[in-house]
Design a protein around this nucleic acid. Sequence first.
DNA 1: TATATACGGTACTAGACAGTTTCGGATCTT
DNA 2: AAGATCCGAAACTGTCTAGTACCGTATATA
Lengths: 218, 218
Amino acid sequence: MTQLDLEADTTEHPSKLGRKRDHTRDPEILDAALEVLAETGYDGMTIDMVAARAKAGKATLYRRWPSKGELVIDAVACMKKGDIDYSQLPDTGTLRGDLLAMIKPHSIEDGEKKLQIMAGLMSMLSRAPELAEAANAAIVEPRATANRILMRRAIDRGEIAADCDIETLSLISPSMAAYRVLILRKPVDRKFLVSLIDGVLLPAVGLGRPNDTRREEG
Amino acid sequence: MTQLDLEADTTEHPSKLGRKRDHTRDPEILDAALEVLAETGYDGMTIDMVAARAKAGKATLYRRWPSKGELVIDAVACMKKGDIDYSQLPDTGTLRGDLLAMIKPHSIEDGEKKLQIMAGLMSMLSRAPELAEAANAAIVEPRATANRILMRRAIDRGEIAADCDIETLSLISPSMAAYRVLILRKPVDRKFLVSLIDGVLLPAVGLGRPNDTRREEG
DNA sequence: TATATACGGTACTAGACAGTTTCGGATCTT
DNA sequence: AAGATCCGAAACTGTCTAGTACCGTATATA
C-alpha cells in the first residue's frame, strides 16, 4: 500500500513535484517487449532482456508496470498500430482482384512477425483469457475484417451469391496462415495465399470452379 | 561418461544383474507428462508434477530420460495411439455424408485435448524444430489425411471435379479447429464443424452452392 | 546368500529470474 | 537553491526448479 502510493500518485492526482516521467519511452519499451516476446516467448523473456533492448533500467519498467504480465498485456493491447486501413482497401472491381491486391510483401512480413508474437503468447493465454481476445483482435481479426468487407462488396455488386457464409470464409486465410506459421513453421508466401484464393475461397463462393482457372502461378 | 554407462548398459548389452527396469511404466509416465503438458504448458510443467501424477519417483524419470526436454519429445512422439483408423473411415456414398460421419463426440474431445497439448508445446517449437514436425504428424495431419482420403474417393466416384485442390481443402477443418481452440479459446462443437462443411468445403468442390442447403442445424 | 540395480521418496545443489533497493546524476516545482 | 521524482545501472533478496545424491526397500542374477 505505502509503496504503491508512489506509483498511484501519477494517476490519482497530478503531483507536481520532481522530474516528470518521460512517456515518449513507453512505446519504445513496449516495442522492445514485443520483439523479445516474438523471439523467445513469454516464459523465455526476462525483464532484463526488455530493459536492455530498450536501453532502459529495470526500475524504469517497474515504475510503469507492476509486473511482467501487465507489461506484456499492455504491449499486446498497444500493438494495433500499423495495421490495415479499412478506408484504403483495394477496389479492382472483382473479388479475385481485390483479394490478390491484398497480398503485399509488407503485409506478409508484418503478419508473420505478429504471428510470432502470438506464438510467444500461447503459453500465457490459458492463464490470462482476456489476453486471447486482445491478441486475436490485434493480430488476426483485422485481416478477417478486411476479407469480410471485400466479400460484402462482391455481394453488393452481384458478383457472388448473397447467402455465402462470409463469417466463416473470411476467417480461412487468417487461420490457415496462423496454422502454417505457428504449427507447420513454414513461411506464408504469395504462392500459398494464391492457392487459398483460387483453390478454396473463390470456388466456395461460386467463382473459379466453372471457368477453368488452373495453372495459375504466383 | 561413467554415470551414463549405467543407463547405456540396458541398451548396449543385456546386463543381467539387478532388478529389471519396469518398462510397463513408460507409457504411464509419458501419459502423465502429456496431461501436465496440456494443463500447464512446457514451461509451467515440472518434473515433480509429472512424477507425482505418474506416482513415480523423480529418479525413475531421470533414469529413463536424460532431461525434461527429451521426456517431452518422447511423449509427443509416442502420442499417435488412439488415432484415426484409416481402414474404418465412413463410406456413406456421398462426400457430405462421409464428412458428417466423421464428427463424433469422442473425436472432438480427443482433438481438443491434443490441441491443448499443442498449445503447451508452442513455446518449445522454436527451440526444437523437429518437435514441430512430430507434433503436427501426431495431432493435425491424421485428420487432414482422413479428409484427403474421403475427397479422393469422391473424385473417384465422379461426385466432385478431379481438379479440386484437395491438398489445401483437406487442411481447412484441422487448421480452423486449431485456430479456434488455440487462439479464440472457443470450443469446437458440431455446429462449427457442420458450418465448415456446408459453408466452405462442399461449396468449394462444387457441391451445395447450386442446391439451397441453408437452414442446416446441428 | 551376496551383489547389483530398480523402485518411491526426500534432501540437496546450483543457477536463473521476478521484483526491490540503492546509487550517482538529471530534471522538474517551489 | 531545495526537495522531490525521474533516469540508467547494478547489487541484492527470495523463490522456484532442473538435475543429483542418497535412503530404505524390492527384485533380479550368480
